[in-house]
Amino acid sequence: MGRKSDARGEEVTVSDLKGIYALWYREVKVFQRERSRVVSSIINPLLWLLIIGGGLGSVLSFGGVNYQSFIYPGVLVQAALFSAVFFGVYIVWDKKIDFLKEVLVSPMSRTSIFIGKILGGSTDTLLQSFILLIVGYLFEATGILTGITFSLLSVALSIVFLVMTTIGLVSIGLIIGSQMESPEGFQLVVSFLIFPMFFLSGALFPIENLPGWLSPFVMFNPATYSVDGLRGTLVGLNRFSLGLDFLVITAFSVVMILIGTYAFRKMRL
């Protein structure tokens, strides 16, 4: 079996470039037409920022930064986490409505299909991240948030962190999606994954003085390094060096891409 499926072309060839573009094009078109998806993906993070952040912000601040501004980078990661991983559900739907067969039966290699899917999903998620960055900037400019640095450099660095994080997270969603038969099953598995990832990332609390039992979970969580990197960039509060944050996130994304490529090759309909 293994050898037989290896006979499929697995490398990305020039002839696959248009196909990769096609997969991206489809995601972007669908995203454009389902505006409600964009709106709902923005509303949820804003609720966290304004209600949890605003509520606790009246009594809390960390490292001289108001709580609301403190969790702003965490909310960026949270938004990316939820929409990127949940993007994987579309591959489960594709299996159901059979669009996936149309792609799998084309001459494109599985690796190229995976890359096209990552690009499509990352574009959706990053678009939403950009909107949240703009919202953050407007809040800062109008005084709703304070202590956040929006400079060319900080925004550029934030985008780098968000891009690397998103690629890894979209891959996780696609890996799970490629293995699942039903959207319900996908949601169940993903919920068990992303809620702990969110709560253990330090998005909502500082990670300097955690209880001993909690610390390992937080340190092992790739999202922790995204939050730390973004918080360092935007608010100036980081536990690790930005270089280490970047390295960990990049390594995480590379590993996820490798696993995802493998999962797509083995994917059954």
Binding site: A22, K29, D98, F99, V105, P107
Partner: peptide
């Protein structure tokens, strides 16, 4: 590359237009 298929279940993307579905197909087949 030698074959075309019409599946038993619909396999076009219903959010896209007919034209867009065909365009996607052309891109997938380079």
């Amino acid at each position: 590359k030698s074959i075309g298929i019409v599946f038993q279940d619909p396999s076009s993307d219903e959010t896209l237009t007919g034209y867009e579905n065909l365009k996607l197909h052309g891109l997938l087949y380079d």
